[in-house]
Design a protein around this nucleic acid. Structure first.
Lengths: 186, 186
DNA sequence: ACCTGAACACCGTTCAAGT
DNA sequence: ACCTGAACACCGTTCAAGT
């Protein structure tokens, strides 16, 4: 006689995301997730392989959301404006979901996101980089701007800017100079 | 009758660094450190307050080492060459000690490095940034280049560059363009 | 088919007892 | 003064037993 399902993979992942953001990576325990969806911890193993698998599923979910934000942002058709919109959306996402963001760029113990997820998330940035720096330099140009944006935001979130000064001003400075740097040929 | 000391804070921190690099952050357990220095786990609490404190001590040690590397690198007096040397030293450190590097830029649960450590580590980059971008823009310019370098290296170490292409070429591209971008006034 | 309690092998940390 | 075993409150995970 089958026992009725009390939860679902979708609910488990959603609860995981909520707990990740509220309690941090270390607070994301199987027991807490289980309680949140109304079962005991062992039952979670009917939905996910293990904690690493749950984290990977959360990761895919977060990546999809960031990709949607970026795709929505880069629509002006004017490359410099698109780059600014992409950077702003990127930073906004990180500020709104710091723990999810950190997870996205953390070294992945178990495989990380699937290749398709990576490609889809890179698309808008690559298009804008190509428009600014030329098709031949699109990949290194995209890597330069993403490296800058990720480095800036992750240092900001980690509290690494501790010499005073205006952090927003440094962001604007970097964005302005980088935009210019990608445009100019060397 | 005092029991003879079997270890020291210095030895505990050194063992911690070795284990961190070999076993990763999660493998850095009190039990493993204790075994490495020849005592049982409870004895470590005579040397460090708790695991967070041990991590903070390791962090200070790692920061001092990176700072020394950077100070040694930026000595040519020619700003563009110094920037290249700083970037190369920074990336080299991260490649040689990936786990220590990740710790350095991770959000710090317990306080993080002391302010003096931060200031000393920023010095060489700030001087070079001032020489390139002018004293008024030194801080945002330094933040831009460190954000780029950290973002690049951390993505590289996390395996986030998964669209093929030459990663070294992207590093060179970014360094060249950024150097130029910091020099040009806006 | 899914859920559960019990169990196992780990953690970090505390503390009384030894020397 | 430092070291130790025992203990506590947690983890993730497995599994036999329930429905």
């Amino acid at each position: 006689m089958p026992a009725p399902a009390q939860t679902s993979m979708t609910a488990v992942v959603a609860a995981g995301r909520r707990i990740l953001e509220q309690e941090g990576h270390d607070g994301l325990t199987m027991q807490r997730v289980a309680t949140a969806v109304g079962v005991r911890a062992p039952s979670l193993y009917k939905r996910v392989a293990d904690r690493g698998d749950l984290i990977r599923l959360i990761l895919e979910d977060v990546a999809r959301e960031l990709t949607d934000d970026l795709d929505t942002a880069a629509t002006s058709g004017e490359p410099r404006q698109d780059l600014r919109a992409l950077a702003t959306a990127f930073r906004g996402f990180a500020h709104a979901r710091p723990a999810a963001y950190a997870l996205l760029f953390a070294p992945h113990t178990a495989g990380g996101p699937r290749q398709g997820t990576i490609e889809r998330s890179s698309d808008a940035v690559l298009r804008t980089a190509a428009a600014l720096a030329g098709a031949d330099s699109a990949l290194p140009a995209a890597r330069t701007v993403v490296a800058w944006a990720h480095g800036f935001v992750s240092m900001e979130l980690a509290g690494a800017f501790r010499l005073g000064g205006d952090v927003d001003e440094a962001w604007e400075f970097g964005l302005r100079r980088l935009t210019h740097a990608l445009e100019s040929s060397d």
